[in-house]
């Protein structure tokens, strides 16, 4: 993210130093002074950051290979925690559910955000109101979102099923009351909540596509669909890539919405990995085992992200 912009200054001091011994001392004093000044700026934030982010991140890696419960002392057990995971039914269910959630949330949010952005990328009066409306769910507090949707998804009397029945569906789904439909209900809620955020990114991306491209396509006789397919989509590729990466990271670590909306239920039908980490680690005090699950979650996110970066590189080439 930063490598392009920062490279030049790393290289700059070197050539001027060479062949000018007398000035060297002044240089190094300057460097030392800059280092001091630089660190003085960074330090207030860095102390907090190191203590409450860097240390825990490192600790999570180490703890994953230890057996440690709230009352005992930590003990090195190698891969035992991971072996235990293989036989843990909860883990298997949570792993499946996490992928289920991500598999629904990522593509649906992407499509919804892109559609909104394209519909709202007009220079007409009142468009700002509609953009605000679309963004609004994202800043609404999670508890409010969860409770409203839970009520809307009420199987017998909720508006969602009433509308579905009006549209002619005889047996609408049980949503959060049913083990099969609870996860789709969570996915719908989260798509609704997040699409406005990614719409903002797409709107910014649409501004970067030069108007001349559309003119040229129109002169060549391209219709609206062809213009979308051959001008808009390729022009949005960098944004899409970023959106997919962000969505992936966000999806796999889903926790708060599930805790508030279904608390993993009914049964274990919406239990996800991050929630299992919370239950094992903070509620049950199995620090080692929960950290091992956390490590697995981290590696899943990392693998998917690296894979997406690779894919993006290859497509660019």
């Amino acid at each position: 993210m930063s490598h392009v912009t920062t490279q030049p200054d790393a290289a700059r001091p070197a050539p001027s130093e060479r062949g000018r011994p007398p000035r060297r001392q002044g240089r190094s004093r300057q460097v030392r002074r800059n280092t001091l000044v630089g660190w003085s700026f960074i330090l207030p934030n860095f102390v907090g950051f190191a203590l409450f982010t860097l240390v825990p991140v490192t600790a999570a890696f180490v703890l994953a290979f230890m057996e440690w419960n709230s009352f005992g002392s930590p003990e090195w057990v190698g891969l035992d925690n991971f072996r235990r995971m293989l036989g843990d039914e909860n883990f298997r269910v949570a792993l499946f559910n996490t992928f289920f959630y991500a598999g629904g949330h990522i593509p649906l949010t992407l499509v919804a955000a892109l559609t909104l952005a394209i519909v709202l990328n007009r220079k007409i009066r009142g468009v700002q109101f509609f953009r605000t409306a679309a963004f609004f769910p994202y800043i609404t507090s999670l508890v409010a979102v969860a409770v409203v949707w839970n009520m809307m998804f009420n199987p017998t009397l909720g508006p969602v099923n009433q509308i579905l029945e009006t549209l002619g569906m005889a047996n609408p789904p049980g949503w959060t009351a049913s083990t099969d439909w609870a996860m789709p209900a969570v996915i719908i809620t989260s798509v609704w909540r997040d699409m406005g955020y990614y719409m903002v990114l797409y709107l910014a991306g649409l501004q970067t596509i030069p108007e001349e491209y559309y003119e040229a396509a129109r002169v060549d006789g391209a219709n609206a669909w062809q213009r979308f397919w051959h001008v808009t989509l390729p022009g949005l590729r960098p944004v899409t890539f970023f959106v997919v990466v962000m969505l992936t990271i966000q999806s796999f670590k889903i926790l708060d919405l599930i805790v508030v909306m279904t608390d993993g239920g009914p049964g274990r039908s919406t239990l996800v990995l991050a929630q299992l980490i919370y239950r094992e680690g903070i509620r049950e005090g199995r620090f080692g085992y929960s950290s091992a699950i956390a490590l697995v979650l981290f590696f899943i996110v990392l693998t998917v992200t690296v894979f997406q970066f690779r894919l993006n590189e290859r497509r660019k080439a």
Binding site: P56, A60, L255, I282
Partner: peptide, 15 residues
Amino acid sequence: TIAVPWQAYMVPQYI
């Protein structure tokens, strides 16, 4: 660290 999900290190933070 922005890329590391917070959920992955919430337990050490809690400890």
